[in-house]
Amino acid sequence: MPSKPAISYRNVTKSFGALRAVDDVSLDIADGEFLAIVGGSGSGKTTLLRVANRLIEADGGTITVEGEDVQNIDPVALRRRIGYVFQSGGLFPHLSVADNIGITPKLLGAPATEIAARVDELIELVQLDRAAHRDRLPEALSGGQRQRVGVARALAAKPRIVLMDEPFGALDPLTRDALGDDYRSLHRRLGLTTVMITHDMTEAILLADRIAVMRGGKLLAQGTPSELSTSSDAYVLELLRTPRRQVERLNALLPQSGAA
């Protein structure tokens, strides 16, 4: 029997008025797994992510985090123990990089010297320059640097689970690529469980162990990329066709590199 899942959704539903944002979804995310939730806008993927740390309260079903029903955990305490990376950073513009990173340990009441040491460690970890960035305000940073701060902030309180809401969506392709790779290796090194939302199937395939596909509030399919490719669902196949076509076209257009 495999170890208990880090996050488990059982028949979870959430409506906003007449709209069923999440419709009877059941999904397990294993400990140490990197899961990508893929879907278009309005598919319910963001709602599915946010009911996990109770940024949004589910209407029905059960969600457990590390075996515990989230309804039995104080939502503030729950959020402090789960890292969350926001779309385009969500950094507090009036706080320095260091204060942004150290915010959750501060909320947890860690002593200032400990926070400072942790902040330095995290700045190194996300490959920012301590001297150049530590005391700057977020506005002085590039988009990629800001998202690195966002990742550092999510990791500050040493969570075992990290939720990411389209973290690399707004970045240019090169930065996005580098950041994705860097995060992937952090995920492995720190033994994290990561759930990442993206609308980009290519990104999902490149980074995640497993992919869940959402559409109209329903979970259409889940599995590794190769499992998904055997799906009978037209929408899932359509989603997979895009990266395939990209590869074929790239292969046709780019001369084969001599080094390979």
């Binding site: 740390n53 940024l55 503030v76 305490a77 959020r79 402090r80 969350y84 926001f86 779309q87 385009s88 969500g90 950094l91 507090f92 513009p93 009036h94 915010i103 959750t104 909320l107 947890l108 902030r153 309180a157």
Partner: peptide, 25 residues
């Protein structure tokens, strides 16, 4: 609103969000 969401997301109570994020901004 994304910043208020972020304040909640990093684990602030409503009061902490008000004092540490909303009022300063």
């Amino acid at each position: 609103p994304a910043l208020i969401e972020a304040a909640k997301g990093v684990g602030m109570t409503e009061r902490q969000s008000l004092v540490m994020v909303e009022l300063p901004l």
